[in-house]
């Protein structure tokens, strides 16, 4: 059970929950001992976002797609640069380290620019869903509409690549109360939408399916780093190195996860790639690192540690009652 004192508040005619109800409390000092394959201490995964932003999307009442009047030339072109210039650079960099990306995919890309996805599939990278377009938000969709959008995106991935879509990062991190329930019901395995932990954790969904959160990252997400937090490129490299060093050290007790979420339109610039390269060199110079994809981490955790974590959470939750 989760917390039974959820408070629903009626705000602007919508009932809102105080707690998303997706996970229970699992304190860092009470974790099952996780060992990644080959005794690795840390699972490192790199998640290139391959996105399409529309020039003239319909306006969602809850979030404007562009800050300027349409066409927002600079906003649109900044993102299109990633597709025209950035991805190939980023792929060559990841190739140097033998890192297979886990692609957070605006599935409209399969139609707009399949050339990029062909390069991804040649490299045996994972595709997971990031919605249809990154300018179509989940806010305000009915449950049926969101179910249809989620299924549509998963089907596009299966049709183009033959891959089952295991993971979901909701488009532009926009959610409804049902987003994760709906994705689990559609056959998904893991969500990247929660930032509560440095290990995978079980996620409770209404269907009761076994489903997990795989740590993605806001703090190490290049777009948050460059656009929101105004961090310099070399400092971004330092942050990745510092996070890695800490999680590598702590992984001796119980295996940790570090994700490096990337966007070719941010990190793919010539003044930013060297710092990322330096950080990846540091990560890859360590031997107890599992370079994995999101799906591999989710499946390994589900198989070996999910049930133990559920039991630990239940024991700790008994104190609430």
């Amino acid at each position: 059970m989760l917390f039974e004192f959820f408070i629903a508040v009626n705000q602007k005619g919508i009932w809102m929950k105080s707690d998303p109800g997706l996970y229970g409390y699992l304190p860092w000092d009470q974790r099952p001992e996780i060992r990644w394959p080959n005794g690795a201490r840390i699972a490192v995964w790199v998640a290139p976002n391959i996105e399409f932003y529309e020039l003239d999307p319909p306006i969602n009442p809850q979030r404007k797609p562009w800050p300027r009047p349409h066409p927002d030339v600079v906003g649109y072109a900044t993102r299109d640069y990633g597709n025209r210039v950035g991805h190939m650079r980023m792929m060559r960099l990841l190739d140097q380290f033998g890192i297979r990306g886990s692609v957070s995919l605006s599935t409209a890309m399969l139609t707009h620019h399949p050339e990029i996805i062909d390069l991804v599939l040649e490299r045996d990278w994972e595709l997971f869903s990031h919605g249809i377009y990154n300018t179509r938000y989940s806010y305000g969709l009915s449950e049926d509409q969101e179910r249809e959008m989620i299924a549509n995106a998963m089907q596009r991935i299966a049709d183009y690549s033959g891959q089952h879509c295991d993971g979901y990062l909701a488009p532009a991190l926009s959610h409804s109360e049902h987003t994760i329930d709906l994705f689990a019901e559609a056959g998904g395995t893991y969500t990247c939408d929660l930032f509560h932990d440095d290990q995978p954790t079980p996620v409770r969904t209404r269907s009761g399916r076994r489903f997990v959160s795989v740590p993605y990252s806001l703090e190490l997400n290049d777009t948050i780093v460059y656009v929101v937090n105004k961090i310099e490129p070399r400092r971004y490299g330092d942050m990745i190195i510092r996070a890695f060093d800490r999680l590598y050290a702590e992984g001796e007790r119980s295996g940790t996860v570090m994700c490096i979420p990337l966007h070719a339109y941010q990190v793919g610039h010539p003044h930013r790639l060297a710092a990322l390269q330096r950080a990846l060199e540091h990560v890859c110079s360590h031997d107890q690192v599992w370079l994995a994809t999101g799906r591999e981490i989710a499946h390994y955790y589900l198989k070996h540690y999910h049930d133990q974590a559920v039991a630990t959470m239940a024991r700790i939750a008994e104190e609430v009652a």
């Binding site: 705000q11 919508i14 929950k17 998303p20 938000y137 929660l194 930032f195």
Partner: peptide, 9 residues
């Protein structure tokens, strides 16, 4: 916009 899962979590 609600639900702001990124900042909550």
């Amino acid at each position: 916009p609600y639900p702001d899962l990124r900042h909550y979590s």
